[in-house]
């Protein structure tokens, strides 16, 4: 049975924050809802966590959340209990259930080991790094086997270098414990890396809900495509120049990511290199073609400004 959101609406002070949000999360699934800041992501989580009431619609749980199997929201800044040690924080839920001390000790020990927090077990939250705090917060939730785990911006407080590692860790943990998890974030790469399915939340609406690859390569609208990264629009009249034909050629326009365009040196080619920017592991080329400018990411750094080139789209299979 899935956790299902049915037409969730939320109005706040006459403003529509969320409109008609519907999606479902499978029993062992990790889902990310991505959207820009201030789009109502946290509100959505709070509604699922039952900390806020929706104006309309309902959240249907496979089994109604109870004290035994609650919905747990891991806050963006973790909200650990500052007066308790790591051990105290992780054991909090068990102690609240009046479980025997020896059993609490044993179960907390297992969590400390899994979350690599053994050395910090006696530390207070103020002595921990952001990554450690987050692991405590997730361990504190996992130990009571929640019905659903909600993560609010799990990467927001982490160093750049730690984000991807954390995404991997969250995915591994989620698969290990098998707890349906919904995360909201604006960190695209990490969300893509860890999620089974992704929802794009723009202007209070869920624009697309699908597997990461589908979303990335087949965005259902320009807004979704644009939100996920720079995108080029190829109008129909340029299809021939780009070498587009067959089934693909039936569409009115094609959305192409910069990495899906290729440059070929060609004298008197239709395109002309305008700008070359070094961006680390790839080069960004701005190419003018008729009255448009296209962005291309390439590993070749042999093109020079002013050079005439042909611009092609990669065949489907190479995407």
């Amino acid at each position: 049975m899935d956790l299902t959101l049915k037409r969730i609406n939320k109005h706040f002070k006459g403003r529509t924050v969320l409109e008609d949000i519907s999606f479902d999360v499978g029993p062992r699934e990790l889902v990310s809802i991505i959207g820009p800041s201030g789009v109502g992501k946290t509100t959505l989580l709070k509604i699922i966590a039952q900390l806020e009431q929706p104006t309309g619609g309902e959240v249907v749980f496979p089994e109604p959340p109870s004290r035994k199997h609650p919905v747990i929201l891991v806050f963006q800044d973790y909200v650990l209990f500052p007066g308790m040690t790591v051990r105290g924080n992780i054991g909090f839920g068990l102690k609240s259930r009046r479980i025997k001390k020896a059993e609490i000790r044993e179960r907390v020990d297992r969590m400390l080991e899994y979350f690599r927090l053994e050395e910090q077990s006696g530390h207070y939250p103020a002595q921990l790094s952001a990554g450690q705090k987050q692991r405590v917060a997730i361990a504190r939730a996992m130990i009571i086997n929640p019905a659903v785990l909600l993560l609010d911006e799990p990467f927001a407080n982490l160093d750049r270098s730690l984000k991807m590692e954390t995404a991997g860790f969250i995915r591994k943990t989620q698969k290990e414990f098998g707890i349906p998890t919904i995360s909201v974030t604006h960190d695209l790469e990490e969300a893509f890396a860890m999620s089974d399915r992704i929802g794009i939340l723009l202007d209070g609406r869920l624009k697309q809900y699908d597997a990461p690859k589908e979303i990335y390569f087949h965005p259902n609208s320009y807004d979704v495509a644009r939100f996920l990264g720079p995108v080029n629009i190829i109008p129909r009249n340029l299809y021939q120049l780009f070498g587009i034909n067959g089934e693909r050629g039936q569409q009115d326009r094609i959305l192409a990511r910069p990495e899906n365009l290729v440059l070929e040196p060609l004298e008197n080619g239709a395109g002309r290199i305008q700008e070359v920017t070094f961006a680390g592991h790839y080069i960004v080329y701005s190419v003018s073609l008729q009255d448009r400018v296209f962005t291309v990411y390439s590993h070749q750094d042999s093109f020079r400004p002013g050079q005439e080139v042909a611009l092609k789209i990669k065949p489907y299979g190479e995407q």
């Binding site: 004290r67 035994k68 747990i72 929201l73 806050f75 909200v79 209990f81 007066g83 909090f92 839920g93």
Partner: peptide
Amino acid sequence: FDSRQIQAAYMLGASRLQTFFRVVLPR
């Protein structure tokens, strides 16, 4: 005092009394 600590305690299954004595009172 961050009132979300109380929310967190409730979510983790603490009763009102437990929350008061274990989370609020120490602060």
